[in-house]
């Protein structure tokens, strides 16, 4: 038994945990950010539910798009070694 698999497993676990929690926080955070920013603008302009509703929806739509982009890129960066330099060994 070599030491490398242990480090690899730990690295994989941290990778999944990191990217997963980032995805979760992005999904929830953008909806919340839309809500808060919308509410602040609405309170200034006196148009209460409308801008809050629109920005919350924008946050809810942008969240999954951003998560999709982030996860696909992270997986690409993980799987494909850059500049055709394959990791041998």
């Amino acid at each position: 038994m070599s030491k490398k698999p242990l480090v690899g497993d730990l690295g994989d676990a941290a990778w999944v945990l990191g990217v997963g929690s980032q995805a979760g926080i992005t999904l929830a955070g953008l909806v919340l950010a839309g809500l808060v920013v919308g509410y602040l603008i609405d309170r200034q302009l006196g148009t209460l539910p409308w801008i809050t509703l629109v920005l919350t929806l924008v946050g809810a739509i942008a969240g999954p798009i951003l998560v999709y982009r982030m996860v696909t890129r992270a997986v690409h960066a993980r799987i494909e070694p850059p500049e055709e330099k394959q990791d041998i060994g």
């Binding site: 690295g11 941290a14 945990l17 990191g18 990217v19 960066a77």
Partner: peptide, 22 residues
């Protein structure tokens, strides 16, 4: 330990993503 690992790993993932051209 896990939070230190996650913070550094996620930073590393973003750095690696920034070195790639899409």
């Amino acid at each position: 330990l896990v939070q230190a690992l996650v913070f550094s790993m996620l930073s590393l993932v973003f750095y690696t993503m920034a070195t790639h051209h899409h």
